[in-house]
Design a protein around this nucleic acid. Sequence first.
DNA 1: TAGATTGTTAATCGATTAACAATC
DNA 2: TAGATTGTTAATCGATTAACAATC
Lengths: 235, 235
Amino acid sequence: MSDTNQPATYRVPEPTLHRLPDYYRYLQHLEEKGASSVSCSLIGRDLSMDPTLVRKDLESIAMVGRPGVGFRLNELIPGIGAFLGYNGGKRAVLAGAGSLGTALLGHRRFAQVGLQLIAAFDNSPLRVGERVHDVEVRPIQDLAEYVRAMDIHLGIITVPAEAAQKVADLMVEGGIRAIWNFAPVRLHLPPKIIVQNEDLYNSLAALSHRLAVMLSRESRGGKSNGVDAGGARIA
Amino acid sequence: MSDTNQPATYRVPEPTLHRLPDYYRYLQHLEEKGASSVSCSLIGRDLSMDPTLVRKDLESIAMVGRPGVGFRLNELIPGIGAFLGYNGGKRAVLAGAGSLGTALLGHRRFAQVGLQLIAAFDNSPLRVGERVHDVEVRPIQDLAEYVRAMDIHLGIITVPAEAAQKVADLMVEGGIRAIWNFAPVRLHLPPKIIVQNEDLYNSLAALSHRLAVMLSRESRGGKSNGVDAGGARIA
DNA sequence: TAGATTGTTAATCGATTAACAATC
DNA sequence: TAGATTGTTAATCGATTAACAATC
Protein backbone atom coordinates (compact mmCIF):
# COMPACT_ATOMS: atom_id res chain seq x y z
CA MET A 1 0.00 0.00 0.00
CA SER A 2 1.08 3.59 -0.48
CA ASP A 3 2.77 5.07 2.54
CA THR A 4 1.48 8.59 2.72
CA ASN A 5 1.02 10.38 5.99
CA GLN A 6 -2.60 10.85 4.99
CA PRO A 7 -4.90 8.36 6.68
CA ALA A 8 -5.72 6.46 3.51
CA THR A 9 -7.91 3.41 3.76
CA TYR A 10 -6.61 -0.01 3.05
CA ARG A 11 -8.80 -0.21 0.05
CA VAL A 12 -10.38 -3.59 -0.37
CA PRO A 13 -9.99 -4.35 -4.07
CA GLU A 14 -13.17 -4.25 -6.10
CA PRO A 15 -12.75 -7.84 -7.33
CA THR A 16 -12.42 -9.01 -3.74
CA LEU A 17 -15.61 -7.24 -2.77
CA HIS A 18 -17.40 -9.01 -5.57
CA ARG A 19 -16.12 -12.42 -4.55
CA LEU A 20 -17.06 -12.18 -0.90
CA PRO A 21 -20.72 -13.16 -1.35
CA ASP A 22 -19.57 -16.33 -3.10
CA TYR A 23 -17.44 -17.28 -0.13
CA TYR A 24 -20.23 -16.44 2.23
CA ARG A 25 -22.71 -18.72 0.53
CA TYR A 26 -20.22 -21.51 0.10
CA LEU A 27 -19.20 -21.40 3.74
CA GLN A 28 -22.81 -21.46 4.87
CA HIS A 29 -23.34 -24.62 2.88
CA LEU A 30 -20.23 -26.10 4.40
CA GLU A 31 -21.40 -25.32 7.90
CA GLU A 32 -24.81 -26.84 7.22
CA LYS A 33 -23.01 -30.00 6.23
CA GLY A 34 -21.43 -30.10 9.67
CA ALA A 35 -17.97 -28.64 9.03
CA SER A 36 -16.50 -26.39 11.69
CA SER A 37 -13.39 -25.10 9.96
CA VAL A 38 -12.05 -24.66 6.47
CA SER A 39 -8.76 -24.06 4.68
CA CYS A 40 -8.18 -21.75 1.76
CA SER A 41 -7.16 -24.70 -0.37
CA LEU A 42 -10.51 -26.37 0.22
CA ILE A 43 -12.38 -23.21 -0.68
CA GLY A 44 -10.21 -22.86 -3.74
CA ARG A 45 -10.86 -26.43 -4.81
CA ASP A 46 -14.62 -26.19 -4.46
CA LEU A 47 -14.93 -22.76 -6.00
CA SER A 48 -12.35 -23.36 -8.74
CA MET A 49 -10.08 -20.56 -7.66
CA ASP A 50 -6.44 -20.16 -6.76
CA PRO A 51 -6.13 -20.82 -3.01
CA THR A 52 -3.68 -17.96 -2.66
CA LEU A 53 -6.27 -15.59 -3.99
CA VAL A 54 -8.74 -16.84 -1.42
CA ARG A 55 -6.20 -16.24 1.32
CA LYS A 56 -5.50 -12.73 0.06
CA ASP A 57 -9.19 -11.96 -0.04
CA LEU A 58 -9.75 -13.10 3.52
CA GLU A 59 -6.66 -11.26 4.66
CA SER A 60 -7.88 -8.06 3.06
CA ILE A 61 -10.98 -8.07 5.21
CA ALA A 62 -8.91 -8.83 8.30
CA MET A 63 -9.97 -12.42 8.87
CA VAL A 64 -7.40 -14.42 10.80
CA GLY A 65 -6.92 -18.14 10.64
CA ARG A 66 -4.70 -20.59 12.45
CA PRO A 67 -1.61 -21.91 10.70
CA GLY A 68 -1.87 -25.62 10.17
CA VAL A 69 -5.58 -25.61 10.85
CA GLY A 70 -7.47 -23.07 8.78
CA PHE A 71 -10.30 -20.69 9.53
CA ARG A 72 -13.08 -21.40 11.98
CA LEU A 73 -16.45 -21.21 10.30
CA ASN A 74 -18.10 -19.72 13.34
CA GLU A 75 -15.73 -16.76 13.07
CA LEU A 76 -15.38 -16.59 9.32
CA ILE A 77 -19.04 -16.58 8.32
CA PRO A 78 -20.13 -13.86 10.75
CA GLY A 79 -16.95 -11.99 9.88
CA ILE A 80 -17.72 -11.84 6.19
CA GLY A 81 -21.38 -11.16 6.94
CA ALA A 82 -20.48 -8.22 9.16
CA PHE A 83 -18.06 -6.87 6.61
CA LEU A 84 -20.74 -6.95 3.93
CA GLY A 85 -23.29 -5.41 6.27
CA TYR A 86 -25.59 -8.41 6.09
CA ASN A 87 -27.05 -7.70 9.48
CA GLY A 88 -27.22 -3.99 8.93
CA GLY A 89 -30.82 -3.29 8.07
CA LYS A 90 -30.09 -1.08 5.09
CA ARG A 91 -33.26 0.70 4.10
CA ALA A 92 -33.74 1.57 0.45
CA VAL A 93 -36.28 3.07 -1.89
CA LEU A 94 -36.96 1.85 -5.39
CA ALA A 95 -38.02 4.00 -8.32
CA GLY A 96 -39.83 2.37 -11.21
CA ALA A 97 -42.46 -0.22 -10.34
CA GLY A 98 -42.36 -1.91 -13.74
CA SER A 99 -41.67 -5.56 -14.25
CA LEU A 100 -38.06 -5.45 -13.09
CA GLY A 101 -38.91 -3.21 -10.16
CA THR A 102 -41.69 -5.55 -9.18
CA ALA A 103 -39.38 -8.52 -9.37
CA LEU A 104 -36.92 -6.81 -7.05
CA LEU A 105 -39.65 -5.75 -4.63
CA GLY A 106 -40.71 -9.36 -4.36
CA HIS A 107 -37.23 -10.67 -3.86
CA ARG A 108 -37.38 -12.27 -0.42
CA ARG A 109 -33.69 -12.93 -0.19
CA PHE A 110 -32.78 -9.29 0.07
CA ALA A 111 -33.95 -9.38 3.67
CA GLN A 112 -31.34 -12.06 4.35
CA VAL A 113 -28.57 -9.70 3.37
CA GLY A 114 -29.94 -6.82 5.39
CA LEU A 115 -31.60 -4.94 2.57
CA GLN A 116 -35.11 -3.59 3.09
CA LEU A 117 -37.05 -1.97 0.29
CA ILE A 118 -39.38 0.26 2.25
CA ALA A 119 -41.03 2.27 -0.51
CA ALA A 120 -41.52 2.32 -4.25
CA PHE A 121 -42.08 5.28 -6.55
CA ASP A 122 -43.60 5.47 -9.99
CA ASN A 123 -44.88 8.15 -12.30
CA SER A 124 -47.84 6.19 -13.58
CA PRO A 125 -51.14 7.11 -11.88
CA LEU A 126 -52.20 3.54 -12.56
CA ARG A 127 -49.53 2.17 -10.30
CA VAL A 128 -49.46 4.81 -7.62
CA GLY A 129 -51.43 3.70 -4.59
CA GLU A 130 -51.01 0.02 -5.35
CA ARG A 131 -49.14 -2.28 -3.05
CA VAL A 132 -46.50 -4.39 -4.71
CA HIS A 133 -45.38 -7.22 -2.47
CA ASP A 134 -46.41 -5.26 0.61
CA VAL A 135 -44.64 -2.12 -0.49
CA GLU A 136 -46.69 0.95 -1.26
CA VAL A 137 -46.18 2.67 -4.58
CA ARG A 138 -46.00 6.43 -4.23
CA PRO A 139 -45.93 9.25 -6.78
CA ILE A 140 -42.46 9.99 -8.07
CA GLN A 141 -42.88 13.66 -7.12
CA ASP A 142 -42.76 12.68 -3.47
CA LEU A 143 -39.46 10.84 -3.76
CA ALA A 144 -37.04 13.53 -2.62
CA GLU A 145 -39.17 14.58 0.30
CA TYR A 146 -39.79 11.00 1.42
CA VAL A 147 -36.15 10.07 1.23
CA ARG A 148 -35.17 13.08 3.26
CA ALA A 149 -37.88 12.57 5.85
CA MET A 150 -37.05 8.91 6.32
CA ASP A 151 -33.30 9.44 6.14
CA ILE A 152 -32.75 6.81 3.44
CA HIS A 153 -29.26 6.40 2.02
CA LEU A 154 -29.77 3.91 -0.77
CA GLY A 155 -31.83 4.26 -3.92
CA ILE A 156 -32.59 1.66 -6.59
CA ILE A 157 -33.40 2.77 -10.11
CA THR A 158 -35.50 0.52 -12.31
CA VAL A 159 -37.12 3.14 -14.53
CA PRO A 160 -36.58 3.24 -18.31
CA ALA A 161 -33.30 4.70 -19.52
CA GLU A 162 -34.88 8.01 -20.55
CA ALA A 163 -36.17 8.70 -17.05
CA ALA A 164 -33.18 7.49 -15.09
CA GLN A 165 -31.21 10.73 -14.89
CA LYS A 166 -34.22 12.68 -13.67
CA VAL A 167 -34.95 10.10 -11.01
CA ALA A 168 -31.32 10.04 -9.94
CA ASP A 169 -31.43 13.81 -9.53
CA LEU A 170 -34.46 13.48 -7.29
CA MET A 171 -32.67 10.93 -5.18
CA VAL A 172 -29.63 13.13 -4.80
CA GLU A 173 -31.88 16.03 -3.94
CA GLY A 174 -33.37 13.96 -1.15
CA GLY A 175 -29.97 13.10 0.24
CA ILE A 176 -29.41 9.59 -1.12
CA ARG A 177 -25.75 8.53 -0.86
CA ALA A 178 -25.64 5.43 -3.03
CA ILE A 179 -27.50 4.40 -6.15
CA TRP A 180 -28.01 0.92 -7.55
CA ASN A 181 -28.77 1.67 -11.15
CA PHE A 182 -30.50 -0.90 -13.34
CA ALA A 183 -31.23 1.53 -16.17
CA PRO A 184 -28.92 1.25 -19.16
CA VAL A 185 -27.41 4.74 -18.92
CA ARG A 186 -24.38 6.29 -17.24
CA LEU A 187 -25.71 8.74 -14.72
CA HIS A 188 -24.19 12.15 -14.16
CA LEU A 189 -23.86 12.51 -10.42
CA PRO A 190 -21.90 14.48 -7.85
CA PRO A 191 -18.61 12.73 -7.08
CA LYS A 192 -19.63 11.89 -3.55
CA ILE A 193 -22.44 9.64 -4.68
CA ILE A 194 -21.63 5.93 -4.89
CA VAL A 195 -23.02 4.25 -7.98
CA GLN A 196 -23.27 0.63 -8.94
CA ASN A 197 -24.44 0.09 -12.47
CA GLU A 198 -26.26 -3.15 -13.10
CA ASP A 199 -26.39 -2.83 -16.81
CA LEU A 200 -27.41 -6.04 -18.51
CA TYR A 201 -26.06 -4.94 -21.86
CA ASN A 202 -22.54 -4.60 -20.55
CA SER A 203 -22.33 -8.23 -19.53
CA LEU A 204 -24.40 -9.47 -22.42
CA ALA A 205 -21.84 -7.86 -24.67
CA ALA A 206 -19.02 -9.90 -23.22
CA LEU A 207 -21.04 -13.08 -23.35
CA SER A 208 -22.33 -12.72 -26.84
CA HIS A 209 -19.00 -11.65 -28.25
CA ARG A 210 -17.29 -14.70 -26.80
CA LEU A 211 -20.02 -16.92 -28.08
CA ALA A 212 -19.67 -15.45 -31.55
CA VAL A 213 -15.92 -16.00 -31.46
CA MET A 214 -16.34 -19.58 -30.34
CA LEU A 215 -18.90 -20.40 -33.00
CA SER A 216 -17.06 -18.72 -35.82
CA ARG A 217 -13.84 -20.39 -34.81
CA GLU A 218 -15.47 -23.79 -34.90
CA SER A 219 -17.07 -23.21 -38.24
CA ARG A 220 -13.65 -22.40 -39.63
CA GLY A 221 -12.23 -25.51 -38.02
CA GLY A 222 -9.87 -23.55 -35.84
CA LYS A 223 -8.20 -21.76 -38.72
CA SER A 224 -7.86 -18.06 -38.42
CA ASN A 225 -6.87 -15.23 -40.68
CA GLY A 226 -6.15 -12.94 -37.76
CA VAL A 227 -9.59 -11.44 -37.68
CA ASP A 228 -12.49 -13.12 -35.94
CA ALA A 229 -16.19 -12.89 -36.63
CA GLY A 230 -16.66 -9.76 -34.68
CA GLY A 231 -13.65 -8.03 -36.11
CA ALA A 232 -11.32 -8.59 -33.17
CA ARG A 233 -7.73 -9.31 -33.84
CA ILE A 234 -6.49 -12.63 -32.64
CA ALA A 235 -3.16 -13.01 -30.96
CA MET B 1 -17.72 -10.18 -11.37
CA SER B 2 -17.41 -11.22 -14.89
CA ASP B 3 -15.98 -14.59 -15.11
CA THR B 4 -15.60 -17.06 -17.78
CA ASN B 5 -13.74 -20.29 -17.85
CA GLN B 6 -13.17 -19.74 -21.52
CA PRO B 7 -9.56 -20.47 -22.40
CA ALA B 8 -8.59 -17.09 -23.73
CA THR B 9 -7.01 -17.23 -27.13
CA TYR B 10 -8.15 -13.85 -28.32
CA ARG B 11 -7.26 -10.66 -26.64
CA VAL B 12 -10.02 -8.15 -26.19
CA PRO B 13 -9.76 -7.34 -22.49
CA GLU B 14 -12.83 -8.12 -20.44
CA PRO B 15 -13.16 -4.52 -19.20
CA THR B 16 -13.12 -3.30 -22.79
CA LEU B 17 -15.91 -5.68 -23.71
CA HIS B 18 -17.99 -4.29 -20.88
CA ARG B 19 -17.43 -0.69 -21.91
CA LEU B 20 -18.35 -1.12 -25.55
CA PRO B 21 -22.11 -0.91 -25.05
CA ASP B 22 -21.60 2.44 -23.32
CA TYR B 23 -19.74 3.80 -26.31
CA TYR B 24 -22.35 2.42 -28.63
CA ARG B 25 -25.22 4.16 -26.91
CA TYR B 26 -23.33 7.39 -26.49
CA LEU B 27 -22.35 7.48 -30.15
CA GLN B 28 -25.90 6.82 -31.24
CA HIS B 29 -27.03 9.80 -29.22
CA LEU B 30 -24.31 11.89 -30.76
CA GLU B 31 -25.34 10.90 -34.26
CA GLU B 32 -28.97 11.70 -33.52
CA LYS B 33 -27.84 15.16 -32.56
CA GLY B 34 -26.33 15.57 -36.00
CA ALA B 35 -22.67 14.84 -35.42
CA SER B 36 -20.80 12.93 -38.10
CA SER B 37 -17.48 12.29 -36.41
CA VAL B 38 -16.03 12.12 -32.95
CA SER B 39 -12.67 12.20 -31.21
CA CYS B 40 -11.59 10.04 -28.29
CA SER B 41 -11.15 13.12 -26.17
CA LEU B 42 -14.78 14.11 -26.72
CA ILE B 43 -15.97 10.64 -25.80
CA GLY B 44 -13.74 10.72 -22.77
CA ARG B 45 -15.08 14.08 -21.68
CA ASP B 46 -18.73 13.10 -22.00
CA LEU B 47 -18.31 9.68 -20.46
CA SER B 48 -15.87 10.79 -17.77
CA MET B 49 -13.11 8.49 -18.87
CA ASP B 50 -9.47 8.82 -19.80
CA PRO B 51 -9.34 9.53 -23.56
CA THR B 52 -6.37 7.22 -23.95
CA LEU B 53 -8.42 4.38 -22.59
CA VAL B 54 -11.11 5.12 -25.13
CA ARG B 55 -8.54 5.03 -27.89
CA LYS B 56 -7.14 1.74 -26.66
CA ASP B 57 -10.61 0.24 -26.52
CA LEU B 58 -11.41 1.26 -30.07
CA GLU B 59 -8.04 0.07 -31.25
CA SER B 60 -8.57 -3.32 -29.65
CA ILE B 61 -11.65 -3.92 -31.75
CA ALA B 62 -9.80 -2.78 -34.85
CA MET B 63 -11.57 0.52 -35.42
CA VAL B 64 -9.50 3.02 -37.37
CA GLY B 65 -9.75 6.75 -37.21
CA ARG B 66 -8.07 9.61 -39.04
CA PRO B 67 -5.31 11.52 -37.31
CA GLY B 68 -6.29 15.12 -36.74
CA VAL B 69 -9.94 14.35 -37.40
CA GLY B 70 -11.25 11.48 -35.34
CA PHE B 71 -13.56 8.58 -36.04
CA ARG B 72 -16.46 8.73 -38.47
CA LEU B 73 -19.70 7.87 -36.73
CA ASN B 74 -21.06 6.08 -39.76
CA GLU B 75 -18.15 3.66 -39.52
CA LEU B 76 -17.71 3.54 -35.78
CA ILE B 77 -21.29 2.80 -34.74
CA PRO B 78 -21.84 -0.07 -37.16
CA GLY B 79 -18.34 -1.29 -36.35
CA ILE B 80 -19.02 -1.58 -32.65
CA GLY B 81 -22.47 -2.99 -33.35
CA ALA B 82 -21.04 -5.67 -35.59
CA PHE B 83 -18.38 -6.52 -33.07
CA LEU B 84 -20.97 -6.97 -30.37
CA GLY B 85 -23.20 -8.99 -32.67
CA TYR B 86 -26.04 -6.52 -32.45
CA ASN B 87 -27.38 -7.54 -35.81
CA GLY B 88 -26.77 -11.19 -35.28
CA GLY B 89 -30.14 -12.61 -34.36
CA LYS B 90 -28.92 -14.62 -31.39
CA ARG B 91 -31.66 -17.01 -30.37
CA ALA B 92 -31.90 -17.96 -26.73
CA VAL B 93 -34.06 -19.94 -24.34
CA LEU B 94 -34.92 -18.88 -20.84
CA ALA B 95 -35.48 -21.19 -17.90
CA GLY B 96 -37.56 -19.97 -14.98
CA ALA B 97 -40.67 -17.97 -15.81
CA GLY B 98 -40.87 -16.29 -12.42
CA SER B 99 -40.92 -12.57 -11.91
CA LEU B 100 -37.39 -11.95 -13.10
CA GLY B 101 -37.80 -14.32 -16.03
CA THR B 102 -41.01 -12.59 -16.98
CA ALA B 103 -39.34 -9.22 -16.81
CA LEU B 104 -36.62 -10.40 -19.17
CA LEU B 105 -39.11 -11.99 -21.56
CA GLY B 106 -40.89 -8.67 -21.81
CA HIS B 107 -37.75 -6.68 -22.35
CA ARG B 108 -38.25 -5.14 -25.78
CA ARG B 109 -34.78 -3.75 -26.05
CA PHE B 110 -33.15 -7.14 -26.33
CA ALA B 111 -34.37 -7.28 -29.90
CA GLN B 112 -32.37 -4.12 -30.61
CA VAL B 113 -29.16 -5.88 -29.68
CA GLY B 114 -29.96 -8.97 -31.69
CA LEU B 115 -31.15 -11.16 -28.85
CA GLN B 116 -34.33 -13.17 -29.32
CA LEU B 117 -35.88 -15.16 -26.50
CA ILE B 118 -37.72 -17.81 -28.42
CA ALA B 119 -38.90 -20.12 -25.66
CA ALA B 120 -39.32 -20.27 -21.92
CA PHE B 121 -39.24 -23.27 -19.62
CA ASP B 122 -40.64 -23.77 -16.16
CA ASN B 123 -41.32 -26.66 -13.83
CA SER B 124 -44.61 -25.33 -12.50
CA PRO B 125 -47.68 -26.89 -14.16
CA LEU B 126 -49.43 -23.62 -13.46
CA ARG B 127 -47.11 -21.74 -15.76
CA VAL B 128 -46.54 -24.32 -18.44
CA GLY B 129 -48.73 -23.63 -21.43
CA GLU B 130 -49.05 -19.93 -20.69
CA ARG B 131 -47.72 -17.33 -23.00
CA VAL B 132 -45.54 -14.71 -21.39
CA HIS B 133 -45.05 -11.71 -23.63
CA ASP B 134 -45.69 -13.83 -26.70
CA VAL B 135 -43.31 -16.55 -25.63
CA GLU B 136 -44.70 -19.97 -24.85
CA VAL B 137 -43.80 -21.56 -21.52
CA ARG B 138 -42.86 -25.21 -21.88
CA PRO B 139 -42.20 -27.94 -19.33
CA ILE B 140 -38.64 -27.97 -18.09
CA GLN B 141 -38.32 -31.64 -19.05
CA ASP B 142 -38.44 -30.66 -22.69
CA LEU B 143 -35.59 -28.19 -22.44
CA ALA B 144 -32.67 -30.33 -23.62
CA GLU B 145 -34.60 -31.79 -26.51
CA TYR B 146 -35.93 -28.43 -27.63
CA VAL B 147 -32.56 -26.77 -27.47
CA ARG B 148 -31.02 -29.52 -29.53
CA ALA B 149 -33.81 -29.58 -32.08
CA MET B 150 -33.76 -25.82 -32.55
CA ASP B 151 -29.96 -25.58 -32.42
CA ILE B 152 -29.92 -22.90 -29.73
CA HIS B 153 -26.57 -21.78 -28.36
CA LEU B 154 -27.52 -19.45 -25.56
CA GLY B 155 -29.43 -20.19 -22.36
CA ILE B 156 -30.66 -17.81 -19.69
CA ILE B 157 -31.18 -19.07 -16.16
CA THR B 158 -33.68 -17.28 -13.93
CA VAL B 159 -34.70 -20.17 -11.70
CA PRO B 160 -34.11 -20.15 -7.93
CA ALA B 161 -30.60 -20.93 -6.75
CA GLU B 162 -31.44 -24.47 -5.71
CA ALA B 163 -32.61 -25.42 -9.19
CA ALA B 164 -29.96 -23.63 -11.20
CA GLN B 165 -27.37 -26.41 -11.43
CA LYS B 166 -29.94 -28.93 -12.62
CA VAL B 167 -31.20 -26.54 -15.25
CA ALA B 168 -27.68 -25.76 -16.37
CA ASP B 169 -27.03 -29.46 -16.78
CA LEU B 170 -30.10 -29.76 -18.99
CA MET B 171 -28.89 -26.88 -21.11
CA VAL B 172 -25.47 -28.43 -21.54
CA GLU B 173 -27.11 -31.74 -22.37
CA GLY B 174 -29.02 -30.01 -25.14
CA GLY B 175 -25.88 -28.48 -26.57
CA ILE B 176 -26.01 -24.94 -25.22
CA ARG B 177 -22.66 -23.15 -25.54
CA ALA B 178 -23.14 -20.10 -23.35
CA ILE B 179 -25.13 -19.46 -20.20
CA TRP B 180 -26.31 -16.16 -18.80
CA ASN B 181 -26.85 -17.05 -15.17
CA PHE B 182 -29.05 -14.88 -12.97
CA ALA B 183 -29.24 -17.40 -10.13
CA PRO B 184 -26.98 -16.66 -7.17
CA VAL B 185 -24.80 -19.77 -7.43
CA ARG B 186 -21.56 -20.67 -9.14
CA LEU B 187 -22.39 -23.35 -11.66
CA HIS B 188 -20.22 -26.38 -12.25
CA LEU B 189 -19.88 -26.68 -15.99
CA PRO B 190 -17.59 -28.19 -18.60
CA PRO B 191 -14.74 -25.83 -19.40
CA LYS B 192 -15.97 -25.21 -22.93
CA ILE B 193 -19.16 -23.57 -21.76
CA ILE B 194 -19.09 -19.78 -21.55
CA VAL B 195 -20.74 -18.42 -18.42
CA GLN B 196 -21.71 -14.94 -17.45
CA ASN B 197 -22.92 -14.62 -13.91
CA GLU B 198 -25.36 -11.82 -13.28
CA ASP B 199 -25.39 -12.16 -9.55
CA LEU B 200 -27.02 -9.22 -7.84
CA TYR B 201 -25.44 -10.00 -4.51
CA ASN B 202 -21.95 -9.63 -5.88
CA SER B 203 -22.49 -6.04 -6.88
CA LEU B 204 -24.74 -5.24 -3.97
CA ALA B 205 -21.87 -6.30 -1.74
CA ALA B 206 -19.53 -3.73 -3.24
CA LEU B 207 -22.16 -1.02 -3.08
CA SER B 208 -23.29 -1.62 0.44
CA HIS B 209 -19.78 -1.98 1.80
CA ARG B 210 -18.77 1.34 0.32
CA LEU B 211 -21.87 2.97 1.65
CA ALA B 212 -21.19 1.60 5.12
CA VAL B 213 -17.63 2.90 5.00
CA MET B 214 -18.78 6.32 3.90
CA LEU B 215 -21.43 6.61 6.56
CA SER B 216 -19.27 5.35 9.39
CA ARG B 217 -16.46 7.66 8.39
CA GLU B 218 -18.75 10.64 8.46
CA SER B 219 -20.20 9.75 11.82
CA ARG B 220 -16.72 9.68 13.26
CA GLY B 221 -15.91 12.99 11.63
CA GLY B 222 -12.94 11.51 9.83
CA LYS B 223 -11.38 10.06 12.96
CA SER B 224 -10.47 6.45 12.85
CA ASN B 225 -9.45 3.77 15.28
CA GLY B 226 -7.91 1.66 12.56
CA VAL B 227 -11.01 -0.40 11.89
CA ASP B 228 -13.95 0.80 9.86
CA ALA B 229 -17.57 -0.17 10.17
CA GLY B 230 -17.25 -3.16 7.98
CA GLY B 231 -14.10 -4.46 9.60
CA ALA B 232 -11.61 -3.27 6.98
CA ARG B 233 -8.29 -2.12 8.27
CA ILE B 234 -7.35 1.44 7.74
CA ALA B 235 -3.76 2.54 7.28
C1' DT C 1 1.64 25.05 -42.60
C1' DA C 2 -0.31 24.81 -37.84
C1' DG C 3 -3.40 22.37 -34.97
C1' DA C 4 -5.49 18.37 -33.72
C1' DT C 5 -5.82 13.65 -33.12
C1' DT C 6 -4.55 9.08 -34.16
C1' DG C 7 -1.35 5.00 -33.76
C1' DT C 8 2.10 2.95 -31.06
C1' DT C 9 5.46 2.26 -27.69
C1' DA C 10 6.91 2.89 -22.84
C1' DA C 11 5.86 3.66 -17.76
C1' DT C 12 2.86 2.96 -14.04
C1' DC C 13 -0.28 0.85 -11.28
C1' DG C 14 -2.92 -2.80 -9.25
C1' DA C 15 -4.34 -7.53 -8.92
C1' DT C 16 -3.06 -12.30 -9.17
C1' DT C 17 0.15 -15.91 -8.56
C1' DA C 18 4.29 -17.85 -6.55
C1' DA C 19 7.63 -18.60 -2.77
C1' DC C 20 8.79 -19.34 1.79
C1' DA C 21 9.24 -18.63 6.63
C1' DA C 22 6.33 -18.76 10.94
C1' DT C 23 3.23 -21.45 13.71
C1' DC C 24 -0.42 -24.38 15.07
C1' DT D 1 7.86 -33.84 15.93
C1' DA D 2 5.86 -33.99 11.15
C1' DG D 3 2.34 -32.19 8.33
C1' DA D 4 -0.51 -28.69 7.14
C1' DT D 5 -1.77 -24.14 6.49
C1' DT D 6 -1.42 -19.39 7.53
C1' DG D 7 0.90 -14.79 7.08
C1' DT D 8 3.85 -12.12 4.33
C1' DT D 9 6.94 -10.76 0.94
C1' DA D 10 8.42 -11.09 -3.94
C1' DA D 11 7.47 -12.04 -9.00
C1' DT D 12 4.37 -11.97 -12.69
C1' DC D 13 0.83 -10.54 -15.38
C1' DG D 14 -2.51 -7.48 -17.38
C1' DA D 15 -4.84 -3.15 -17.70
C1' DT D 16 -4.52 1.78 -17.47
C1' DT D 17 -2.10 5.96 -18.12
C1' DA D 18 1.52 8.69 -20.18
C1' DA D 19 4.60 10.10 -23.99
C1' DC D 20 5.54 11.07 -28.54
C1' DA D 21 6.05 10.47 -33.38
C1' DA D 22 3.14 10.03 -37.66
C1' DT D 23 -0.47 12.05 -40.37
C1' DC D 24 -4.65 14.17 -41.72
